[in-house]
Design a protein around this nucleic acid. Structure first.
Lengths: 200, 200
DNA sequence: CGCTTAAGATACCGTTCGGTACTGAAAGCA
DNA sequence: TGCTTTCAGTACCGAACGGTATCTTAAGCG
């Protein structure tokens, strides 16, 4: 029977979640290596010793940001896919939902994990963020693909191919987004996938 | 009439091209931010003042490495496409050639430019490496796609869609390669594109 | 040979980096 | 009211950073 007790000592003056949210944006803009602790202090409004006490070293802090980001991202994908519905119509809807999110101010940040796995390769060995993200993303897309043949038999190999195609394509699209492409180019590239889905 | 004259002063003891080649590999492994001048000195075997005299600042040196890399990469694409030949058979051949190169020791490095454009965003404004790379790559792929309909009429919109699909897909594949995927996963993902091309 | 030019090599510059003592301040508890 | 615990804030650490002044060495040219 442990009732929720107020923690001992002086209470924290900052909100951890809000700080992580700001730092996610910061790391996304600048990358890990180009972001100094001074930048982190300025962006968070929290003094350095408090950051170290709460989140550990800069690398551990970044790992926390990444884990949080990964979870949010996968959840977002799941929500889009759930909303999209079955059939090739569902895939089209999903692509449009994806585009709407990508074009939004909050979007266009798909490459944080890829960027991170490049920069931190081998330095955070206990958790391969990139592989985990790839696997989970493919799992989500597989759900979408498995709902394409409404009522018909499904060829497992074909479903796997479609899943890989769509997953890899969206990864490439995130690179395009990240590398400074405009809204129109993103729209055009998504159109290419719409055309392909029409032949499914 | 300027005959090639030996330059005045003490001749250079290192080969510029060889240095750039080594540094390309170094930057690819570590990224720009994570690579210090000490690393560059160690990898190149050239002392720091000589590097600065020859290539300028670290950023300018990196820009030189990137430009060289970009040119080589586009040339490689052109060679693969030229060798692939016409028709959907040509696309299949191109994908196999791409895979062979990607799996080789020399390959698996497709993301240097993407990585760079992330890290140096806004710092080298006179040359948008990423946009240039995207454009040139799409131009190359377009050549491949335009040779698909052997003797038939070609729908420009469809050709554009196929070009965008293939280009974006290959970009995504480079991300997958970069983020630590094995040879088998690359092969499987390429299989997805083979299946799609079969319906062209 | 001397003069000029440019490269090799050492040592060093000021700044910024990630990380941490240390001193006060604010909470719960007795 | 003290005691304990935890956080805020200032100041600081050694190390590494990107970049350079300076001296020595090696080439061409007369």
């Amino acid at each position: 029977m442990s009732t929720t007790r107020a923690p001992l000592g002086r209470p924290r003056l900052f909100d951890e979640e809000a700080v992580l949210e700001r730092l996610t944006s910061l790391f996304w803009r600048q990358g890990y290596g180009a972001t100094s602790m001074s930048d982190i202090v300025d962006a968070s409004g929290v003094h350095k010793p408090s950051l170290y006490r709460t989140f550990g070293t800069k690398e551990q802090l970044f790992a926390t940001v990444l884990r949080r980001y990964l979870a949010q991202r996968i959840a977002m994908f799941a929500a889009l896919i759930a909303e999209a519905g079955p059939g090739t119509r569902g895939v089209h809807r999903f692509l449009r939902l994806f585009e709407a999110d990508a074009v939004s101010a909050h979007g266009r940040d798909g490459c944080l994990l890829v960027m991170a796995s490049n920069e931190l390769r081998g330095r955070l060995p206990e958790y391969d963020f990139a592989a985990d993200y790839r696997e989970q993303m493919r799992g989500q897309i597989r759900v979408l693909v498995d709902r394409v043949p409404t009522g018909e038999e499904v060829d497992p190999a074909l479903a796997a191919a479609r899943t890989d195609l769509l997953t890899t394509y969206l990864l490439g699209l995130q690179v395009v987004m990240r590398s400074g492409a405009g809204v129109d180019e993103i729209h055009d590239r998504l159109q290419a996938m719409h055309v392909t889905v029409d032949s499914w």
